[in-house]
């Protein structure tokens, strides 16, 4: 009897604690239910079309799946095929890394450099220049223009001008020549790349505390470069982080420009990227498992680079 009572008292606090934790959670949920209601429409769609697909991709990458038969588990085979026996993927990977290494840093620095120069202008000129630099990235159908500029016949504007000036005698097939195609895609990609982060930088530069600059001048800052390094960059770190994420993601995702200018697939895969490789297997060959392996690899590549760059950016101005 006594022992039983002892047991009861021993059990009770534990049970009470457990119950109260659940009831606290429930109470919190009841109290905050309006927030969940407000969040739910966005989050349901977001999970359905972004979060769950990422997980699906990860799982599918270990299966053979062609949309008709039931998926079959094949372990790491998709990955071993991707890295060991797919020559085209190696070309795609090489091109993607080349694109990312060139367009990523250049577009990021260009975004900041032009935003920084534009910031010195008077408000009206600033608005116009912002428009000039930002317009390409929102003008949607721009590939069309570049197709005429780089057209392979003598009606192409670049060919026409070069022939008129006497640099070349015959038109050059800009878009179907392996030698030029990468360069052209990179130029067009750079032209398009002054987007969201460019705007964020201009806006960020406007918010920098002017008294900070005055104080620094008293403390011995002599020229604009010192001001840039010691004042401007450190005060803009949040915007720099945001811009880096935008630019890195875009530079690994080069595909639309390549498809529209060089065709799909491009001559001898000269402008093939990881994304076009993914499209090839996902939407043409319907090897969904293999395409998912490519997608998972792309996911890891983008996320890894972003995280790495963020840790590097934390050092700016320190």
């Amino acid at each position: 009897m006594q022992t039983e009572a002892k047991l009861q008292t021993n059990l009770n606090p534990l049970q009470a604690k457990k119950e109260s934790r659940w009831s606290v959670a429930l109470k919190e949920f009841k109290r905050d239910k309006h927030y969940y209601v407000l969040l739910s429409p966005f989050m349901i769609i977001f999970f359905l079309f972004t979060v769950i697909p990422v997980v699906c991709s990860l799982v599918l990458s270990f299966f053979y799946f062609n949309m008709l038969e039931a998926p079959r588990f094949i372990g790491w085979q998709n990955y071993s095929r991707l890295f060991l026996s797919d020559d085209v993927f190696m070309i795609a990977l090489k091109n993607t890394l080349l694109f990312a290494l060139i367009t990523g840093p250049i577009s990021y620095i260009a975004c900041f450099l032009f935003a920084w120069i534009i910031n010195e202008l008077s408000p009206k000129v600033r608005a116009i220049m912002t428009l000039v630099f930002y317009a390409p990235s929102i003008s949607g159908n721009v590939y069309f223009v570049w197709l005429i500029l780089f057209s392979g016949d003598s009606y192409g504007y670049l060919n026409g001008i070069l022939m008129k000036l006497g640099f070349i005698l015959e038109p050059i097939q800009w878009l179907t020549n392996e030698k030029y195609i990468m360069t052209i895609v990179i130029i067009v990609q750079l032209w398009l790349s002054l987007g969201t982060s460019f705007l964020a930088f201009i806006a960020g530069l406007q918010t920098i505390d002017k008294t900070l600059v005055e104080a620094a001048t008293v403390d011995g800052i002599r020229n604009r470069w010192q001001e840039l390094w010691f004042i401007t960059l450190p005060s803009m770190r949040p915007q720099l982080m945001f811009g880096a994420v935008m630019q890195i993601t875009a530079s690994f995702a080069v595909a639309e420009v390549s498809i529209n200018l060089a065709g799909f697939p491009s001559v001898n895969y000269a402008a093939h990227t990881v994304v076009t490789h993914l499209m090839d297997y996902g939407t043409i060959r319907f090897e969904m498992g293999y395409a998912s392996a490519i997608a998972t690899f792309l996911f890891v590549l983008m996320l890894g680079t972003n995280k790495l760059t963020q840790s590097m950016l934390r050092k700016v101005g320190e």
Partner: peptide, 30 residues
């Protein structure tokens, strides 16, 4: 601040770090 608010936002920020191409295949199936 409520249960899950921070982690939900963290997931949203994380999703800025990859492009929509990554999810294209499962999206088609969905």
């Amino acid at each position: 601040r409520f249960r899950g608010s921070r982690s939900l936002f963290a997931i949203v920020v994380l999703s800025l770090m990859f492009s929509g191409h990554v999810t294209a295949i499962p999206n088609y199936m969905v």
